[in-house]
Design a protein around this nucleic acid. Structure first.
Length: 607
DNA sequence: GTAGGGTTAG
């Protein structure tokens, strides 16, 4: 890298835009001059702050740190920048990144001269706050002051990009720094692996890991990966359902004489539970215990969750007892998991009881606790109680999240409480929460299902006008509303615009249109759409079959229904209640069709 | 001196 070169990654326009907005204007106010060295001793209160157990630092420590910072700023002669750097580093380690940002401004205000380390700490704080553009602005300052960014600088930028979900850009920057002759180290690799896994590219991370081990990575360096790198990839593979690869990597890790710990075991157990490999998960849990690795609250939570999802509530409670016996205190996640298990079984009152007892035991419930209970009440069609709980959470100062509003809107629309849903949507805006595409979909289908098609169309047009990219699922909502609301012609027109919008209809889209045609009695068009979807490589599912069969059944076209039943049998689809109701209707029209009953492969009805 | 780091709930 060349000293004094212009920043090669931040575009000049990005930086100037930030400066114009005044966000980082303070960064540019002071000209560069070498700092003077003094030998003032480190003030003892700062020393105290630095010595705090950083992991367990209490929140009020930041106030101490800020007090000391004030004190440091007033000292004459001024302290060397390295003292400020130590304090900034400690504040950053305690995750008070916003304070790093404001402290930096005050250093400039005091006419002190930040050095390269100060700027690296600031840049890292910006990146960790997912403000990579600010990070690049700091990079600009680094260059402007004649410093050379180092691997620490670039590692922070790569981290920020990963956090912002810009994985492609992160990989590009990684390649770029190698080209520039900057050698990535194990921390850089760790960050890149983490970013890949977080964005669902665990196999790429695995590939990188293999190349690292063999020294065939672009930088040519050979790294011995560590437990954390292995654990990150194993967890990523588990989350993507690639259990065989995860287990293989686990064995490889042990082959490298890296001992597994509770985290990697927890990841594997979680993956196995999600894959329904309950016995194997249990096996891993037992091996873990045999090897003297203590399960922690996370491990227990994973197991309790798996049991709850299987409806095995008493076993889940048994595990809770075991957990308490082993002096592993349950936390808010344990309680939320159990509450959700109860709600899944329709036992919302028991869940509520647990919720109340939780507070009594000194566990503070959080927004997710409320979300779980609100969902539980709606599921039991107790909308009033759900709404009461919502008001309670607001009153208690627990800020609802987008998911809270999604649940409320879903429940209210489901219960036909359109006016409440409108109010709820307004509330959401008061909280400054921007609707997600899922929120828009809930609103669209909610309005449609409650005979407010015009309101739905208005919303849809506003979304289109706002220029936000609409996904096929959003179109599915409005198409369904149009078809069911007797506006098939508009639906057909809209459906026709999908390809020019770059959207590919899904099996849901086709099923909606087929339903629309059937409803309008246009069975030929419905049938054609069924053929068209297959031609385009979109396989019909049970819903598509049921929809078309019902259409034919209503029009007394028994032969066509039977033909479809035959195809259903060929594809080994399990019939569901809807399929059977079509068959029953068919039989009620003409019991000579009884012989076709054998087309239904297995009679136990699929839920 | 400054960069990481993995597991759980809706």
């Amino acid at each position: 890298m060349v000293r004094n070169s212009s920043p090669c990654f931040a575009s000049a326009t990005t930086i100037s835009r930030i400066v114009r907005r005044g966000e980082l204007s303070t960064l540019f106010l002071k000209p560069f001059s070498p700092s003077s060295k003094t030998s003032t001793p480190l003030p003892t209160p700062v020393d105290k702050f630095l010595k705090t157990d950083r992991k367990n630092a209490k929140a009020n420590n930041i106030n101490d740190a800020l007090d000391h910072f004030d004190h440091m700023l007033q000292m004459h002669p001024p302290l060397p920048m390295s003292y400020f750097n130590s304090l900034l580093a400690a504040v950053a380690k305690n995750k008070h990144y916003n304070h790093v940002y404001s402290m930096y401004g005050r250093i400039l205000d005091a006419d002190l001269e930040p050095d390269f380390i100060t700027l690296n700490i600031l840049l890292n704080s910006c990146c960790t706050l997912q403000r990579v553009s600010l990070g690049f602005a700091v990079l600009g300052v680094i260059y402007r002051k004649g410093y050379r960014p180092n691997i620490v600088t670039f590692t922070s930028l790569i981290k920020g990009m990963g956090l912002e979900g810009k994985i492609g850009e992160a990989v590009q920057l990684f390649k770029k720094i190698i080209e520039l002759g900057c050698r990535p180290n194990i921390k850089t690799w760790g960050i890149l692996i983490n970013a890949l896994c977080r964005s669902g590219h665990s196999e790429k991370a695995l590939d990188l890991h293999r190349k690292m081990g063999s020294g065939t990575v672009p930088s040519g360096s050979k790294f011995k990966t560590n437990l954390v790198c292995y654990s990150t990839i194993i967890d990523g593979l588990c989350k993507e359902g690639l259990m065989d690869k995860a287990k293989e990597l686990f064995l490889e890790m042990e082959g490298q004489r890296i001992s597994p710990d509770v985290v990697v075991y927890s990841s594997l157990i979680h993956g196995l539970c999600d894959a329904g490999e309950w016995e194997e998960a249990k096996g891993f849990f037992i091996t873990m215990l045999d090897r003297g690795i203590r399960p922690n609250v996370v491990t227990f939570n994973i197991l309790i969750n798996a049991l709850c999802k299987e409806g095995k509530l008493s076993e889940a409670n048994g595990l809770l007892d075991l957990m308490i016996q082993r002096v592993e205190n349950p936390d808010v996640i344990t309680f939320n998991t159990l509450m959700d298990g109860l709600c899944l079984e329709g036992k919302v009152d028991d869940a509520r009881e647990l919720f109340v007892s939780m507070a009594a035991k000194g566990h503070e419930c959080n927004v997710i606790s409320y979300n779980i209970l609100i969902n539980g009440y709606f599921k039991c069609r107790r909308s009033d109680e759900a709404m009461r709980l919502y008001r309670e959470m607001v009153q208690k100062g627990c800020k609802p999240m987008i998911s809270t509003f999604n649940s409320l809107l879903t429940g209210l629309f489901q219960d036909g409480m359109v006016e409440d849903a409108r109010k709820c949507f307004a509330d959401m805006q008061v909280y400054g929460i921007t609707p997600e595409s899922s929120t828009n979909n809930i609103l669209l289908s909610g309005f449609c299902k409650n005979d407010c098609l015009i309101e739905a169309m208005e919303l849809f047009h506003n979304l289109e006008k706002s220029g936000c990219e609409l996904q096929i699922e959003t179109f599915n909502c409005i198409l369904d509303g149009l078809c069911k609301g007797g506006k098939l012609d508009i639906a057909i027109e809209l459906f026709g615009t999908l390809s020019e919008r770059g959207l590919v209809p899904t099996v849901v889209t086709y099923s909606i249109m087929i339903h629309g045609f059937c409803k309008a009695g246009n069975l030929e068009k419905a049938s054609n759409m069924f053929l068209e979807m297959e031609e385009k490589g979109c396989a019909p599912n049970l819903v598509t079959f049921n929809t078309l069969m019902r259409g034919f059944c209503i029009s007394n076209e028994a032969d066509r229904v039977i033909e479809l039943l035959q195809r259903l049998a060929e594809r080994e689809f399990l019939p569901d209640a809807s399929t059977l109701s079509v068959v029953i209707d068919l039989l009620s029209k003409d019991d000579r069709h009884m012989k076709y009953l054998n087309l239904i492969p297995t009679f136990p009805i699929q839920a």
